[in-house]
Design a protein around this nucleic acid. Sequence first.
DNA 1: ATGTAACGCTACGCTACGTAGCGTACTATA
DNA 2: TATAGTACGCTACGTAGCGTAGCGTTACAT
Lengths: 190, 190
Amino acid sequence: MAAARRILLEGGYARLTMERVAQESGIAKTTIYRRWPTKAALCTDLYLDAALELHDPETGNVASDLKSLAEAVVRLQTRTVAGPALVGLIAEAQLNPKTKRPFLAEFAGRRRGVTRLILHRAIERGELQPDTDIDLVIDALGGAVTFRLLQGHAPINKRFTDELIDLVLCGCKKQKLVQNQDESESRRIR
Amino acid sequence: MAAARRILLEGGYARLTMERVAQESGIAKTTIYRRWPTKAALCTDLYLDAALELHDPETGNVASDLKSLAEAVVRLQTRTVAGPALVGLIAEAQLNPKTKRPFLAEFAGRRRGVTRLILHRAIERGELQPDTDIDLVIDALGGAVTFRLLQGHAPINKRFTDELIDLVLCGCKKQKLVQNQDESESRRIR
DNA sequence: ATGTAACGCTACGCTACGTAGCGTACTATA
DNA sequence: TATAGTACGCTACGTAGCGTAGCGTTACAT
């Protein structure tokens, strides 16, 4: 796994071949296949391992919950093996449909879980409109990040995620905002 | 191209092999390679060909502009070859970095163009906040759609895109909305 | 009639996933 | 100490699929 991590970080998913992992780790390819049935399984483990650091920040309000989580995601995707691993798994799932189902089960589940928790709590607190479609919000947030991750047309950093979260929370339409008066004391509503 | 289209629609990108295109079209594989240097180039042509139907609807306000465009995108991605072609190109770009640059140039350019036009016009009209980050909005909209396209965890339909657009325009935070009074007569501002 | 362009065909080269089969070292237990 | 079991290494394959080389053939234009 250490070798695979190194290769992923240096050369991205395209450079990750089982032969090379075997060579650089000094472990026979057959042995690697005895532990992971496919390359995708190895990548999944790498991803999940790195993604353990994501947790619910529980800061007290949605905006900072999301921004705090996003900060961790940015680090995860740009500094750790999770970025290239995820990108590779997504690509793999398209080219090799057999890997699609386990990928979705392992990944989409865990990744969406924390955000769902944050948003659900925010609705209960009355911070968000009660009819908010949680999955839609997750798709907008996660989709934008994944979009940039896949295309690399723009950076993924705190400025981006902060603005993204503001956009999804407040919209971009010109409007007079009259903040809900219990916005900061939103626990009242529970 | 007709054969490739048929294969993509029936079996998705994973089933699209040059051998199969040759076989089903009755054209030699070498001849196909004389026209398109790579499989990605063939897919790009298929995509661009299908995407010609996207145009600026110019309905008079942002929301319906975007929703109208989104309706065309939904049809494009779910009923035509553009969906699987795009998915394949994205995957290919990850596994084979050589194809990444041309893909971005051809694709990201055209795809983002129309939306950028709509949003730019909306800002000039005063429908959107003047400091709106257009690329960010495009990433949120396009990202969510691409996310669902890649993962297939939820349907892509008009209900989804309509709600998505409302979300990005108005946010999901609980707030008293006092619509700008010239909201429906927004041409006044120009 | 001849040159040129486009096509077809067979056979390859290459990469990389994933597997089979067999031999070997290390460890635990009688 | 003998032996069984487990984990590992190695070589050699099988397979898929992209992309290419080389050569022959057809069709069309001048």
